[in-house]
Amino acid sequence: MSLLSVDNLQVSFPTPRGRVKVVDGVSFDLGRERLGIVGESGSGKSITGRAILRLIRPPGRVSGRLVFDGRDLAGLSERDMRKLRGARISMIMQDPRYSLNPVMTVGTQIEEALRVHERLPRHAMRARVRAMLEAVRIDDPDRVARLYPHEVSGGMGQRVMIAMMLIPRPSLLIADEPTSALDVSVQGDVLRLIDDLVRDHGMGLILISHDLPLVARYCDRIVVMNAGRILETCPAGALNTARHPYTQGLLAAVPQMPETRAELPVMERAT
């Protein structure tokens, strides 16, 4: 049985010119595997991620079937949904600077994420936070736990966020551009970390990004989205043989390491 099944997902928002379908009939099944969703900005990839967590607020409208671990998400009350969020499905956001609470220490924040879902004695709680910080390879967990978000670097902030998202031990992790606010040198570390944790805990992963080569490196399967629809699904290894012209266009636009082309091919765009 699949972990998550998305069937004909549609998300629309009202505009002065009528409702616009931002996600238009997206369907896929996810097992305990790593799925990448790729597309340009505005392709609906992030909205798909948010819709799975039921984070689309009115006037946005969502339809379609979302089944997670045998339960229909649309049928759950807001209260049940809250129990699911974080505990079973977690999401890593793009920029740690905007997603962490600036007036709470790192340790307290991670602890809070755990306390919402589990009742544990204080020392057990501390130990879990410490172990989690060690798991995200923070060398001096006791010191870092006492720091405020502005006192840590971007890469460390993102590790803190990963720690916070993984401490309740979710089964599905959604990572929305987890490294685009980070340096290349740190990007690799953070992705490898997510990768290891996903494997160790046997989680499912949805990695959302505009960076095709990066997604190809860290996922098993890739879904290419444009204008709210899925254009193509292919195994990550077979990305080079992708057939759809849009996917080929995205691939060609990436500068190569020995770049010898005088000009980069660009996409035709209806302005």
Binding site: S41, D183, V184, D211, L264
Partner: peptide
């Protein structure tokens, strides 16, 4: 985004050729 990045990079390359500009660029890419 990568596709927009390609457009801007092409633009910078063309402008340099047309105006004889000198570039000092900082990047991690």
């Amino acid at each position: 985004d990568v596709s927009v990045q390609a457009e801007i990079l092409n633009l910078l390359k063309r402008l340099r050729a047309e105006h004889g500009l000198t570039y000092l660029m900082v990047t991690h890419n």
